[in-house]
Design a protein around this nucleic acid. Structure first.
Lengths: 188, 188
DNA sequence: TCGACCATGTAACTAGTTACATGATTCG
DNA sequence: CGAATCATGTAACTAGTTACATGGTCGA
């Protein structure tokens, strides 16, 4: 199960299941997501396996929190996972499958399908753009000098790059929408 | 379950479960895949639901084939699905999650991670390129005039576009690999 | 005759989703 | 006082994967 390793990675700093869910909802959701109903049992398994440990702490606002931290065994498991090389996802791109069946619809319905995809992509791009502004790539501008330690520079660069990955992906999709609309109009 | 609808879409022409698996392995695998162990039961459910029907036919080479064809109810189900608009996949991009944890590895290991991703992407791009050659976009060249009926032109254009979608996606990923390698070297 | 491919299926398991259950605090 | 947010969990279900079982045909 990949989520085990993802949570292990996210636990660079101690956090509760609820905290981790928040992380998914923000920037992380561009490349992974998980529901609380999956996070809690998975944290339980990680603890059983001795990869993380938990400590109950009072919350400033609400019931007690169960804060997890990564153990040495968890650290090892994580680096081993990373050393096994990049995991190429099995593609399940629903809209692309649907697109290849668009002959079943008429001209207007087909175009509307692609317009809807375009609108959705623009919306998601607008959300991402805010993160891109928070994490501009080092080089072009003068940021990154803000960071004193090498650790901080590295952390910043990785964050910025992963956000940029989402950006390139969404831009490529938008380009494709334009192409599809043009082609579909051309053969009308 | 999306696979139900995908199979329904793929059954524009009658086919057996084995045939459909072949379709996944070729061009389709760029945006969807399914194993035979999932295809056979799903075809069974579709038949139970009265969306497709089957007929056992002798094979020229091997045991009897169970050939399915789409019924009117299946056609309706398919168009309703398409009219509900594009399905935006929940992203589960393993390598991107891993990338955001690369601080756990040292410089050489991190670079090797991205090089491995680059190699894999180039490989997949080379495979796709063969389909791109079979289905060049109409407009630039003189193909698509080969097709007499509007139906054929439309089918060709949709195929060409969906293949091009994969192309743009992989090219964006390659661009990102270059960017990541450059940035990571810059902050070494 | 052996391996590759044709062809269909079941069983056990893993991963992920949706719905439900519970209860505290904070802000308007 | 009601809605939003904090906080953790279970149960039932859906989707997908891996392993296993069976057996036919064709070509080297």
């Amino acid at each position: 199960m990949s989520l085990k390793h993802i949570l292990l990675g996210m636990l660079a700093n101690p956090a509760s299941g609820y905290d981790l869910k928040k992380d998914f909802e923000y920037s992380l959701s561009n490349f992974w997501n998980a529901e609380l109903a999956q996070i809690y049992p998975t944290l339980g398994k990680l603890e059983q396996d001795g990869l993380i440990s938990s400590k109950v702490q009072p919350s400033s606002q609400g019931p007690n929190r169960k804060v997890y931290k990564r153990l040495k065994a968890g650290q090892n498991e994580l680096t081993n996972w990373l050393k096994q090389g990049p995991i190429i996802p099995k593609m399940r791109i629903g809209y692309a499958a649907q697109f290849s069946f668009l002959q079943e619809l008429n001209y207007e319905e087909r175009l509307e399908f692609v317009y809807a995809l375009q609108r959705d992509t623009k919306k998601r791009l607008a959300v991402l753009q805010k993160f891109v502004e928070l994490y501009p790539l080092p080089g072009a501008e003068k940021q990154s000098e803000h960071f004193s330690t090498k650790q901080e520079k590295e952390a910043y660069a990785l964050q910025a790059l992963v956000i940029h990955h989402g950006l390139l992906r969404l831009q490529a999709l938008l380009d494709w929408c334009d192409l599809a609309i043009a082609q579909m109009k051309a053969i009308k």
